[in-house]
Design a protein around this nucleic acid. Sequence first.
DNA 1: ATTTGGCACTCTTTCCATTCGAGTGCTAAT
DNA 2: ATTAGCACTCGAATGGAAAGAGTGCCAAAT
Lengths: 361, 361
Amino acid sequence: MRRTDVTERQKKILAALVEEYIASAEPVGSKTVLERAGLKCSSATVRSELASLEKAGLLEQPHTSAGRIPTGAGYRLYVNELMDRRGLTEEETKRINEALASSAGRDLFQDAGRLASEETSYPALAVASPAKALITRFDLIYLDSRSFIIVLLMSDSTVKNKLVRLPFSFEEALVRRLNAAFNASFTGIGREAITPELIESTELGAGDTLGLASVIASFAAEALASGQRAEPVLMGSESLLKIPEFRDSDKAHRLMSYLSGSELAGLPSLPGSGDIKVLIGPENVAEELKDTSVVLASYDAGDNMRGVIGVVGPTRMDYSKVAAKLSYIAAGLSRLLAGRSMPPQGFGKLMIKGDDTPHEG
Amino acid sequence: MRRTDVTERQKKILAALVEEYIASAEPVGSKTVLERAGLKCSSATVRSELASLEKAGLLEQPHTSAGRIPTGAGYRLYVNELMDRRGLTEEETKRINEALASSAGRDLFQDAGRLASEETSYPALAVASPAKALITRFDLIYLDSRSFIIVLLMSDSTVKNKLVRLPFSFEEALVRRLNAAFNASFTGIGREAITPELIESTELGAGDTLGLASVIASFAAEALASGQRAEPVLMGSESLLKIPEFRDSDKAHRLMSYLSGSELAGLPSLPGSGDIKVLIGPENVAEELKDTSVVLASYDAGDNMRGVIGVVGPTRMDYSKVAAKLSYIAAGLSRLLAGRSMPPQGFGKLMIKGDDTPHEG
DNA sequence: ATTTGGCACTCTTTCCATTCGAGTGCTAAT
DNA sequence: ATTAGCACTCGAATGGAAAGAGTGCCAAAT
């Protein structure tokens, strides 16, 4: 059971078996291991070694008289100690760089997720860790006697806005007074601090008899709340269907439903920035992921925000490649998001940060 | 071949067969038809009628000595003339109403898509037809000597914004001058009108020696462009896997890839608002959809915008139910989006319209 | 004490032949 | 026209039998 029980030769055998299994998706027998590991012994010897490894809980047999496949523990040992951490080819890094660069600016999360999925051919998900941003500043832009725009500058330097159009008239002066009042009492507070009492006192303070304050407060509350929930994007879930393990429609369906439906709440404590976290099969908490592996890479999204990008695949997965690619993509994201010190595309040539993805009629 | 060749009894038989096939997903034989249609004749008669229908191109046999299934033309006749357009049950309408109401405001497209998918148990997609919105008004909010916010009010009443932070200082007065200059020369124009010359003249006019104008112009151009492309959302594609026709992983994979990857450019000329369009199997232009059916409903998204919501499923589909549900959802969307004259959720009680979905660090 | 060749054994997979059954098409009688 | 009856067809299900892959173990060899 203890790793120290595993001899050098056994490690070599385990590594060969895992690699073969990753490539072939089929139980591996003693003969095949022998070939791949290039050992100087007979298949009988390998067999007895395999039996030991099985006793140690690193391998298992689907049934008597089939080859063996790694257990979760087997993969874990492989990933921790045996795996040869090769990097990416030049072509691969180039491809990733280009893809990230070309998506510059818009929908970076989505594009990064798509990229991760395409590169690994597994479903990918990307989350920006919830920002606990507060409101730094209010601006109310008076448009005409019945409408104005609320512009909120958040502490994480995002900007949110809403156009408010009312069925009755109000004065520009009122909007100005409200602007000042909100800047005074609604900045730097959390959602729970927005109470009916606060709204009422703001209303009184600004002389608002029309209820505008409650509209503004409502939007403020919404803005504070929306930052709270992470919004995971899932890309390329259809690639599951190409994986032998998920040829079974039911299995694929279960996993896809979980991925697309879940809040991904089960996402484990995020790894530190730049780190890679590999969760192998049974190590996953979520029941639905028990026989899949999850590889996560975290990136620095700037302004103290941390994001995670990851893929979900069969336990039989080229961990080395996948980890390298995710890691590289995550680094690229960090570079693009955290620094943002490179010139924007288009006409400009200066650094820009903000929100440019509105949608809604 | 001409529809007039089809006798009343044949229509009855066709209808029974289609309905049975929709329910069972398996070729239907003469005996089953007889039972379901409740005809006063024998199975032999039905058989000869079936043979006629087959000759007319409305039915086909997967192989000799199996039951029959409808062809595209068969479904078409059924949908056009035979289908009994029953409405929704009270429970169904209630469920849809509640779902739409609860999503009020945020991510309505996405939620509507999800709803459509859940209700029909087919993959659903929702598109807002591209708005050709122009910029109505610029507001530049000066934050501090190195940053300001650009707020754009678009002609479709959405609002877009961006926080700009620069590595050098500038005066509030400059920002004010630029604000006026952009309001003068950049409102009401299309993207193609934003030329280097225009930017330069604006720069000169406002006395901008720092290049701020080009940053603002760049964002303006981006805002004008982003409205142009429709952004389809696809929901519930995993439900494909529950459908017998798509138990085959390869088939499912092909379709899912098409749906998630495509620009949905193949979406046919949209039906008029309130209309339902049914595209049966081979009627679809896209090769990938040749053996699926697409049901589309359009809705009115306000401000002259039109959206489409639809589902993709097997040709064997309960057209009546699906059409009714989509139609009802589309009507609900129209109500929520076009009018928007109902009080917003939260603290407010007045009508609100705008953009509240920023994301990006 | 480890390694090895050999061999019996176990299971799955594949293949074939057979049967089974649903459904048709045709014909002759009504 | 309709119908009962029947021969026919073709896929689906059934049931071994044979093949193949791989193991486990033992006795001999190193």
